[in-house]
Design a binder for these strands. Structure first.
Lengths: 203, 203
DNA sequence: TCCATTAGTTAACAGTGTTAGCAAAATTAA
DNA sequence: TTAATTTTGCTAACACTGTTAACTAATGGA
């Protein structure tokens, strides 16, 4: 009779509760309101229990960062349709990125929330690689489809990502409630510009 | 005999010390290390003295935010040379922006430092207007010089700023020590793309 | 039943922002 | 000069934060 198994399940249940309740707090009151004591209150356990499941508070945040990148990678990947042109796919990836950022604002916030602490974390996240791979492969196809082989793939990739991230940050700063479904004209403009500049590259 | 004046000067001196020492702490240990008690220690006064000069800690941070935008506006303005073409000026503004961000990393950090709190602050800063005006006027000239009058100035402005900010954030995340004088190829690429897309707009 | 492990607790330490209340110093008025 | 008043700066507290040591109660196996 799997007593050990049940115990492990119970432990896992507490961990899930920590994650769940943490997320509730973040959604309602923002990241800076997330505190160990508040989580302990919410899961109706004492404070040290949390440290049995997460090394420290940063580990909890890191968990959401990883999860965020995993979700994003999935969403971007599902935006790609191999029957369409690479140009179209790139545009769809961009709008998909936009949608993700707006639908998961709080998530996107820590994923890229600058400040120094996050930097090292972000660079050591394998889930982040999945995200960038989706973009990289699509841009790579764009380059071959448009016969501009001399172009620097990695440069273009970074440019693409930078543009996307920049637009979203500026959007966040001008905090009008934006509908994720309505893609910003700025995004359309910038991405079209990006694709144009791809085609106009002289081999 | 201006006793009152001297007193005011003394008060001003303390305020300057608060600013000076705060900046030292931030430069050496980062924003999250800045605490009222640490400042008090550094200026060799007790904690409540600080509250005579700043309403609270946020006000100190807001001070640096304002100052940052003022400095940036100045630096961008000085990058403009009326003898040159608007296209060239726009490129120079971009590199100037890049230089500012890298030379004043800690400053740029709070100016655009994520979190929600900053959002409202940023939107209510007149020094920020000065910054955006420099960019706006230059893009406006680009549009007339290139005879693409049908274009949406404000849209292009936002796109331009988004691209710049995005590139810098990504640069910060991949925290290799970058030389501010060496402009990133990503920046050059993106800005050239931006200008190309301006010219290729169909009236 | 006794022992060992584990789960979960309380209570503390060191730090944070902020403020009330008090003492000393400086200025003004008499 | 003395008395009253304002200013200046301090101590100490409050209510938080993350983190951990030390203890108790419960559980599982021999």
């Amino acid at each position: 009779m799997g007593v050990v198994e049940r115990k492990l399940r119970d432990l896992e249940k507490i961990k899930l509760q920590i994650i769940e309740q943490s997320w509730l707090i973040v959604e309602e009151e923002g990241w800076q309101a997330l505190s160990i004591r508040k989580i302990a209150d919410a899961i109706e356990y004492s404070v040290p229990v949390i440290y049995k499941h997460f090394e420290n508070k940063d580990a909890i945040i890191a968990y959401f960062t990883r999860q965020g990148f995993a979700m994003m990678a999935e969403q971007l990947a599902s935006a790609v349709d191999l029957n369409k042109s690479a140009d179209d796919n790139l545009y769809n990836i961009a709008t998909s990125y936009w949608k993700f950022a707006l639908e998961h604002k709080k998530c996107y916030e820590i994923m890229f929330g600058l400040g120094i602490p996050q930097c090292e974390v972000v660079n050591s996240i394998k889930e982040m690689k999945a995200t960038s791979t989706v973009m990289l492969t699509c841009i790579s196809k764009c380059i071959t489809e448009n016969n501009v082989d001399q172009i620097d793939l990695y440069l273009k990739f970074k440019t693409f990502w930078s543009i996307l991230h920049g637009i979203i940050t500026i959007e966040f700063l001008s905090n009008q409630k934006t509908n994720p479904e309505e893609v910003s004209p700025i995004l359309t403009d910038a991405i079209q510009g990006f694709i144009i500049s791809l085609k106009h590259h002289h081999n």
